[in-house]
Amino acid sequence: MKILIVDDFSTMRRIIKNLLRDLGFTNTAEADDGTTALPMLQSGSFDFLVTDWNMPSMSGIDLLRAVRADERLKQIPVLMVTAEAKRDQIIEAAQAGVNGYVVKPFTAQVLKEKIDKIFERVNG
């Protein structure tokens, strides 16, 4: 299971990486923005994408749309972990095909729950 973590703050990437390791996911890579994440996704067989929303040049929602529009990537489950908390935004993410939505600040328990739920659905 190879996971890509996309967030413009290195501390947040590190927190998510640590939590994922505790959940048994040790194969992770990091990107600081949608524009760097997309080529990584296209060239590196990732099985799961965790992304922030608000990032400098390419936002998480645009990254999600790009992933869903790419024939080879569109099956990848995407979990959004973000401080964006407007109802419209959550609906927008759902319509763009997000698989889970976690608002910051979050707990390890919530992250685990959402990831478990996503894999349950993907494998089920």
């Binding site: 929303w53 608000n54 929602i61 419209d88 935004q89 927008e92």
Partner: peptide, 16 residues
């Protein structure tokens, strides 16, 4: 909406 607003400081006072 795709621009992003960052953390909400007064989330309990807003309906949206």
């Amino acid at each position: 909406p795709s621009r992003g607003e960052g953390p909400q400081i007064h989330a309990d006072k807003r309906d949206d």
